[in-house]
Write a protein that binds this DNA or RNA. Structure first.
Lengths: 141, 141
DNA sequence: CGTGGACTGCTACATCTGTAGTAGTGTGCC
DNA sequence: GGCACACTACTACAGATGTAGCAGTCCACG
């Protein structure tokens, strides 16, 4: 499942609140996107169609809840990019990041720290619960 | 300028050879994609339209040459992904990579090495006019 | 010179995406 | 009890993308 740019915009709101109405989404992104209410609605419905959201009626109003987790969506988007643009190699992406993207000093330092940390964690398996670990039910097919 | 998946497929071939004919591309990707000759041709032409390739006639046969570089294309694709999926923060992507993608030990080590290397390079040869980073890496993890 | 193959430009068509309009319907207010 | 409002389902339409066919043309070969 691939999310289009507009769909990402909507999903961001849903993920931030865990459950939203179309109105909520419009309130959140209307200013920035200029979308009409129906545009939000259509996007929301398409996301339901493709299984990224679940909708439930409350007083005849739809409430949308993510089925696709943020991390999972990121993983897939990233996988797509790596596949298309870096020959399927995460290493290639990494090299590009370091070599071409001119990471700021702070970012490099932070990345080094993260690496060390992950290293430690993986050696002492107790890990869980990052900031936004979204466990998404996997749709079976 | 954004490249579609099919366009990436074609561009990969062009970048690998610096100049190609439609036939070359078909030979290179036909087996893997199952495309017809005309599909390649259309994609090539669309790439010319959008300014990613230049074409030149030799004996009434078109030879295509990249105008858009691979690194540049990667940069843009990456920027798009970071924008859509990571709230515009490369740091967010980095965190995801380390935390979620379960880099293999080898990859992590390689990345550390790359970082150290880039660090040295950037400090060594040229420091003038550089980014005067206002310190403070965002969100302390 | 006629024919076939290679290559080209143009056209086509389905699907996806961005964006929105319209009409139907339940509900609360006057 | 009707009307405005909010929300929904359905429909629309243009541009991008995936994929390919067709017809014209040039060159080489017989």
């Amino acid at each position: 499942m691939k999310l289009s740019p507009s769909e990402w915009t909507v999903m961001r709101v849903v993920w931030d609140r865990t459950e939203v109405t179309a109105r909520d989404v419009l309130d959140a992104v209307g200013a920035e996107t200029g979308w009409a209410y129906t545009t939000v609605k259509t996007t929301l419905d398409r996301l339901v169609d493709k299984g990224a959201l679940a909708v439930e009626k409350h007083e005849r109003q739809g409430r949308y809840r993510p089925l696709l987790g943020r991390s999972e969506a990121r993983r897939r988007a990233l996988a797509g990019l790596v596949e298309r643009a870096f020959g399927g190699s995460v290493g290639g992406l990494l090299r590009h990041l370091v070599a071409e993207e001119r990471l700021a000093d702070g970012e490099r330092a932070a990345l080094s720290r993260l690496l060390a940390q992950a290293d430690a964690e993986e050696r002492g398996p107790d890990g869980a619960g990052g900031p936004d670990t979204a466990a998404a039910p996997e749709e079976g097919g």
